[in-house]
């Protein structure tokens, strides 16, 4: 999911000397036959690299994504909502762990991946650099952000890499649960007082465009990732997925009685799709560069947790070593 087409930034992959034409052809034949690639199987080095980048970005996004919503756990308006939100954020941590685990099957360590996140070298989805300023943002994230994530992830359930595809099948079930819960929050607000409706509309205004950006740059401007398509890591283009998302989400906003913050949004009878306005790609690239409202806070929060937890991890290691020494004696 949360890879927002960052694969475009990748340099042309240099063929590995081990990647002989025969091996590559045999590999491609397996993919074409819809076989799953498993960790012990041979795979081209560029396939491995692409997956490591995509999967680790996905895992990082799950983890950083805990922060904006975690911001409202202490202030959830009812005990029931508090329990649901806590459980949701816990699910995201579980997704992160699970996907880190999947990435490790490609021969990298979680510690190294996390180090890249903390140093700012690795990316995570820009959507989590937006602030959650009202309770309605928790609803909007569930509805829109988890909703966009599902659009992205459902095709990944058929991804050619076995561990990733299996992770996505499990994760998707929970994400659709999150999406429903988020929508339910919005529904309750929209049935509520004028202030609650205002809260809901305001959240939609702020989250709609960033949620569209989650699908990554437009196909027109971005180098089409034909290789990922051929490898069945990617199944649909960014614009195709974005259109599906818009088509699914606009009627949901109508049902809530909310207005999409897009003057140009119209339903095209001929195509059966919604046409929508221009996405502000300038904003997207700014946030990607680090110039979003919360980029600094998010990374600082993870770094602080890591630094302040160092003595705890060291203690656990020291204790384990002592125990092992005792057992050996």
């Amino acid at each position: 999911m949360y890879t927002q087409g960052l694969d475009q930034k990748q340099k042309k992959s240099v063929a590995d000397p081990g990647d002989s034409p025969e091996r590559l052809a045999a590999f491609q034949a397996r993919i074409d036959a819809d076989e799953k690639i498993e960790p012990k199987d041979w795979m081209p080095s560029a396939y491995r690299k692409t997956l490591i980048r995509q999967m680790s970005q996905h895992a990082h996004s799950e983890i950083v994504g805990m922060l904006p919503e975690g911001n409202w756990i202490s202030r959830a308006p009812t005990l029931r909502r508090k329990a649901i939100l806590l459980a949701k954020v816990q699910d995201e941590a579980g997704h992160g762990l699970y996907i880190y685990g999947g990435t490790e099957t490609l021969g990298v360590s979680r510690d190294d991946l996390v180090a890249d996140l903390l140093s700012g070298k690795a990316k995570y989805s820009s959507i989590f650099n937006y602030p959650t300023v009202t309770w309605a943002d928790v609803g909007a994230i569930g509805w829109l952000v988890d909703g966009a994530a599902i659009m992205n992830q459902i095709p990944l359930c058929r991804c050619s890499y076995g561990p990733y595809s299996r992770a996505m099948i499990r994760v998707c079930k929970e994400e659709s649960f999150h999406q429903r819960q988020g929508y339910e929050i919005m529904l309750e607000l929209c049935r509520g007082t004028d202030e609650q409706k205002r809260m809901a509309q305001d959240a939609l205004n702020r989250w709609w465009w960033p949620s569209l950006m989650m699908f990554g740059p437009s196909d027109k401007t971005s180098e089409h990732s034909a290789q990922s398509m051929a490898w069945k890591i990617k199944r649909f283009s960014n614009d195709e997925l974005r259109q599906k998302y818009v088509d699914a989400t606009v009627p949901q906003a109508d049902y809530l009685g909310l207005r999409m913050p897009d003057e140009k949004l119209v339903f095209d009878e001929k195509t059966g799709h919604y046409e929508f306005g221009e996405i502000d790609w300038q904003e997207f690239f700014e946030v990607l560069k680090g110039n979003g409202k919360c980029n600094r806070e998010r990374l600082e929060a993870r770094n602080r947790a890591h630094d302040e937890g160092r003595w705890v991890r060291e203690a656990a290691r020291a204790y384990a070593e002592k125990q092992a020494a005792k057992d050996a004696a």
């Binding site: 922060l67 975690g70 806590l86 459980a87 816990q90 941590a93 762990l97 705890v312 991890r313």
Partner: peptide, 19 residues
Amino acid sequence: WVGHGPELEEEMAMGNFAL
């Protein structure tokens, strides 16, 4: 502790206890 623990697994444990 959610989002701020010394280790992901511990964050999850504290979150589960809170839940």
